[in-house]
Every structure is written in structure tokens, then in C-alpha cells.
């Protein structure tokens, strides 16, 4: 066995890796922001007393959770193409990842909503708050604080899963790796480097979520106790 590693040719291509990493982060950022919005709306929808609304949200969640991400990406990609709509690979990747993570986020946030005790809502009703005000002030913020660690993991997972979008030639980190390794014939070295970059990206995201948590959950910041 003779392991002969040569990173020189790979390291030389660092600007391409940097671009790829930035694109991966952008995909993750867009899908995280939009996925959170979908998750909140989806969770409200799933808990709706309107059977059609809760049914539609339920079907969405189950359809996404029971199909592979790659197939979802192809569905969006070829679906839009067959409608004669042309979008960049990046836009398609961002859309598919958002739809995917939105379903998981819906389930996580719904669990958070369900964990708010009935008494909290009754107290708010007794204070004459409207339904929307109760959702915003009394249900949503504490619910999100409770499930924040799960949300963080889900979004980091999404960032890693975004490597699958290399299949439709979105120029993210894995796609860059794919062509660098075919140019340099240094496949193992390339993927070692890419793995390290993914780890760094994960750490960056976790640090970002930690900082965001300090800003949006002042009680947590001051007391440090879980809700």
C-alpha cells in the first residue's frame, strides 16, 4: 500500500473552491430564511381548524419527507423546463432546497407550537389579545426558542445536502470539486479538501445560529436556561 497524496494542484485552485463554498452558503442562507417562513406558515396551517388547509399542509410535509431530495430537485428542474420556463441552475437549486427544508421545518415548528401549554393561550385570550397577536407573541417566539436546536441541526443538514444540487450543475462546492478532480486527476485529495471545507461551513453556520439566538432570545441570553 502506497498512499501518495499531493495537494499542490488542488490548493492552486482555491479561488474556485472559495466561489463554490460561497455559493453553498448562499443556497443555505436562502433556503434557511424562506424555509423558516414556510415552516411557520405550514405549522399554522397544519394546526388550522380548517380541514382543507391542514390537509394540504399535511400532504406537502409527507410528500417531501417520503421522497429523495435528488428526485425533488429533478422534479423542480424538469418541471419548470417542461413549462417552458428557464431559470438558472442556482435558482432551481435554491427553490428545491427551500421546498425541501420547508417541510421539515413545518414539522419542527409544529412540535414547538404544540408544546405551548393551553394555559398560556387562555391567559392571552383573557387579556383580550387577538388570535394573530397570540400566535405572534405567546406561541411563536417561545415555540421557536424551544425547537431552536432542532432547527439549527436541520438547516446545517440542509447545507450539507445542498451538495446534491451539483447534479443540475449549480456551481456550489461539490460541483467545483467534481470538475477540479477531473481536471487534476487528484480525486481523493479534492474530496478530502472539500470535506474539510464543509466542516468549516457547518461550524460557521452553527456559530451564526448561536449568535442569532443571543439576539432574538433575550431571556436565554440573560438566564441561560432552556425554556
Amino acid at each position: 500500500m502506497n498512499l501518495n497524496l499531493d495537494f499542490a494542484a488542488i490548493i492552486e485552485r482555491w479561488p474556485a473552491f472559495l466561489d463554490g463554498a460561497l455559493l453553498t452558503l448562499q443556497l443555505a442562507f436562502i433556503a434557511t430564511v424562506l424555509g423558516t417562513v414556510i415552516g411557520v406558515l405550514g405549522a399554522i396551517g397544519r394546526r388550522s381548524s380548517h380541514p382543507v388547509v391542514s390537509r394540504i399542509c399535511g400532504i406537502y410535509v409527507e410528500a417531501i419527507r417520503n421522497t429523495p431530495l435528488l428526485v425533488q430537485i429533478f422534479l423542480v428542474y424538469f418541471g419548470l423546463a417542461s413549462l417552458g420556463l428557464k431559470f438558472s441552475a442556482f435558482a432551481v437549486a435554491a427553490a428545491a432546497l427551500t421546498i425541501n427544508v420547508g417541510a421539515y421545518t413545518t414539522e419542527i415548528i409544529r412540535a414547538g407550537f404544540d408544546s405551548i401549554p393551553r394555559g398560556q393561550i387562555e391567559a392571552a385570550e383573557g387579556l383580550a389579545l387577538s388570535k394573530a397577536q397570540i400566535y405572534w407573541h405567546v406561541v411563536m417566539w417561545p415555540a421557536i426558542e424551544k425547537v431552536y436546536p432542532s432547527l439549527t441541526s436541520q438547516f446545517v443538514l440542509l447545507m450539507l445536502a445542498s451538495s446534491v444540487t451539483s447534479q443540475i450543475s449549480a456551481e456550489e462546492l461539490t460541483a467545483v470539486a467534481n470538475y477540479v478532480q477531473s481536471d487534476t486527476y487528484r480525486a481523493f485529495e479534492t474530496y478530502i479538501l472539500v470535506a474539510i471545507v464543509y466542516i468549516v461551513l457547518s461550524l460557521i453556520m452553527r456559530a451564526g445560529f448561536w449568535l442569532l439566538g443571543l439576539v432574538v432570545f433575550p431571556r436565554r441570553r440573560r438566564l441561560g436556561t432552556p425554556l
Binding site: 394555559g119 387562555e122 391567559a123 383573557g126 387579556l127 397577536q133 407573541h137 431571556r219
Partner: peptide, 28 residues
């Protein structure tokens, strides 16, 4: 016009006492 207080206080845990008190007067 009606205030109700329950056995299990039901203060909003994520808000300070001041925020608990000012929430309804401000929003309602």
C-alpha cells in the same frame, strides 16, 4: 372589561414581568 387569574399563574415565560404586563395594553 374582565380580568381573570388562574391557579397556574400562566405568566409568559419568555417575557420580563414588565413585558408581560405591557403586552396587552400596548397591543389591545
Amino acid at each position: 372589561d374582565v380580568g381573570i387569574v388562574f391557579q397556574s399563574y400562566n405568566l409568559f415565560p419568555h417575557l420580563t414581568i414588565e413585558e408581560n404586563i405591557t403586552l396587552a395594553p400596548c397591543s389591545v
